[in-house]
Design a protein around this nucleic acid. Structure first.
Lengths: 203, 203
DNA sequence: AATGCGATGGACTGATCAGTCCATTTTTCA
DNA sequence: TGAAAAATGGACTGATCAGTCCATCGCATT
């Protein structure tokens, strides 16, 4: 009788996904299923019971992480304190680049982009685009209240995110260890937010 | 007698590198040497006569492209016309993201980052860092001339490059087709340069 | 104790691919 | 024109790996 997945051990499932993240982000996409199984303390067959193929496993990792990423997007905003809010946003972004392995999923998505473009698409839309949309919404409110210059909020949001990231995102994707300190991150977050406010101050 | 590389057909060498770029950037890092040879109209052995291994071939591609990218950095600057110069710079960057395949090498570098960190390093340093340094030098001169606000030129350069790129670089790496038009690129380049000038205008 | 379900691990298949070898052909140049 | 250098292509090796199969095991529930 063929073995079809019925109800399945949740803890083992977590172990599989975590091991897959570790192995894939450190060894790259060509890491073997055998090693993932070993790291998870599970047999290879068990992985195939949960996920039909390596591609589906990668997809599962990506969608789980995307879920984690979008959850905190709904935190209440500090409307009216634009500079403080933008500073906090910048700090969060910089910390993500700073944390080793923080860009692991993103690198994985880039590596999958050739063969599984849908994964790259999901990661981009749920990560970068969703974040930008949230930022744009904030900027739109500030503009409407007259506290920021008339502008395209989407474009302004993209500018701000870009100012914050600079080359750090690319550096992280290319495996550069972060050269930042926590104090440096704080300083840069404040500086960038202030510059943005100057660039977009009402005339 | 062992076949060691002596003086070798230059045209064929170009064909090999070009074919390797095409195949590797479209199929990904796991593309076979056989296919590269076929695309180049060359035998696999010939590739191995030119480059000892696949890794060295990838390295050769990367360093060649890096050379192409850094060469035009030495063009004479439009000192004193900051906004125009920055607009031109922004346009060049945006066009690179816009051109399909323009980010192929970068994606290749990201994919190599796990197994051949030196390639990623070379691409980052010769590409992103060199570009930023050139931009920073320009900003430094403008600051010294009192046409821009006192600031850390390196950080300002990174901000500007980030503002220009926004999410486009990531989008390109993730295989998103460019949504820009030439007119849109022009408008964005002007807008971004103007915002930057406002952010960094002397107080 | 019996039953059933999922986990196990090891063996196995089939495929792909880097890199080598070599007998032969083409190009280059003296 | 003749010989050396380089290119060719096809066969071959060795390794890796995705995915399958299966006999067995452990642990529930009844």
């Amino acid at each position: 009788m063929p073995r079809l997945a019925g109800q399945i051990d949740v803890a083992k499932n977590e172990a599989i996904l975590n091991a897959a993240v570790e192995v894939l982000t450190s060894r790259g996409l060509q890491a073997s299923m055998h090693e993932i199984a070993r790291r998870a303390g599970v047999s290879k067959q068990t992985i195939y019971n949960h996920y039909g193929s390596k591609a589906e496993l990668v997809r599962a990792i990506a969608t789980r992480r995307v879920g984690e990423l979008t959850a905190p997007l709904d935190a209440p905003e500090a409307t009216g304190h634009a500079e403080a809010a933008l500073t906090a946003y910048a700090r969060g972004l910089l910390m993500a680049y700073h944390r080793p392995g923080g860009m692991g999923l993103l690198r994985l998505a880039v590596m999958s982009a050739c063969e599984q473009p849908d994964i790259a698409q999901v990661v981009y839309e749920a990560g970068a685009l969703a974040n930008r949309a949230r930022l744009a919404e904030f900027i739109r409110r500030e503009v409407a209240a007259g506290r920021l210059d008339e502008c395209d909020p989407e474009q302004a949001a993209e500018c701000f995110a870009g100012m914050v990231s600079g080359q750090r995102q690319l550096g992280a994707l290319l495996g550069r260890p972060s050269a930042d300190t926590e104090a440096g991150i704080d300083a840069r977050a404040r500086e960038v937010a202030a510059r943005f406010i100057r660039a977009y101050a009402p005339r």
